[in-house]
């Protein structure tokens, strides 16, 4: 964990731009990323650009490294002892694996929503307020109430829970829990939201709810979503990247990928021949 956060701001201003990324609309750029779990190589030479205010979908067969890549983007892999990341990943042109980068700050800017809803065993209110509180974004009291309300509203959950904010978040339904987790992520005003199969534990109605939500959030956030569901990728994303056996095979506009895949592995996957 890089603790060296003393001169963070200056460091960010002064750090040299990562090569090959003049395009300002690329929020995140990954260059030659290799990831190893102990000696096992999970990702090979990934090069991928994530554009700002767009939804990028990552698709591919199980075990191909989608989650691994996603977790690289906010350095959640740091919490796994045996995991090692090589290459460069830049957020706004700043290498996030640079020594001066602080994971706390990075993860505040790049939020994450997990496959299984994981509300904290606290009240709904405290679930949302937790992030803003630890980061000092809002004072306790009316200011925090406002943050909680607006986050829940943006996550489309306010109407359902506004009368039961003091009840535990774990008492909600699966779909509500997932939206709670999204609201929790929004509450710290991230720039990017990473979502790892956010709908896989949900029924179609809850899924539709979340998909609408993702579409709305796109205007304010950059979103990267992992999904196994082709239709979902087609519905919510503007860009799609296809992963296979640890490689990024193809990345293009979603429409292109689904109508006119360049690589035959991509074609095989989206037409359901394997995966």
């Amino acid at each position: 964990m890089s603790m060296d956060n003393i001169t963070l701001t200056t460091a960010i201003r002064q750090s040299p731009a990562v090569r090959g990324m003049p395009n300002i609309s690329n929020k995140i750029t990954a260059r030659d990323v290799n990831v190893y779990y102990a000696t096992k190589r999970a990702l090979k030479e990934i090069n991928l650009d994530i554009e700002e205010h767009r939804v990028t979908a990552l698709i591919g067969p199980s075990g191909c490294g989608k989650s691994t890549f996603l977790r690289c983007l906010n350095r959640m892999n740091d919490t796994i002892d045996i995991c090692r990341v090589e290459g460069q990943i830049a957020l706004d042109g700043q290498d996030i694996y640079a020594r001066v980068i602080d994971t706390v700050q990075l993860r505040a800017r790049v939020g994450m929503v997990f496959q299984k809803p994981n509300p904290f065993p606290k009240s709904i209110y405290d679930n949302i307020a937790y992030g803003p509180r630890i980061h000092g974004l809002a004072q306790r009291g009316p200011e925090m109430d406002e943050v909680v309300r607006s986050s829940l509203e943006r996550a489309g959950l306010w109407g359902e829970v506004k009368d039961r904010l003091k009840e535990p978040g774990t008492g909600l339904s699966g779909g509500q829990q997932q939206r709670l987790c999204i609201a929790r992520a929004i509450a710290v005003s991230p720039e990017v939201i990473l979502m790892d199969e956010p709908c896989s534990a949900l029924d179609p109605i809850a899924t539709a709810h979340i998909e609408e939500l993702i579409d709305e959030l796109r205007t304010s956030y950059t979103i990267v979503i992992v999904t196994h569901n082709m239709q979902q990728a087609a519905r919510v994303s503007q860009k799609t990247a296809f992963f296979h056996l640890g490689e990024m095979v193809e990345c293009n506009d979603t429409e292109e990928i689904f109508t006119n895949p360049r690589d035959e592995r991509t074609q095989g996957y989206i037409t359901g021949r394997y995966g």
Partner: peptide, 14 residues
Amino acid sequence: RRSAYQSEAFEARL
């Protein structure tokens, strides 16, 4: 947002 996380105040807090 950017200013929130890259402000002096945030860093002091950090």
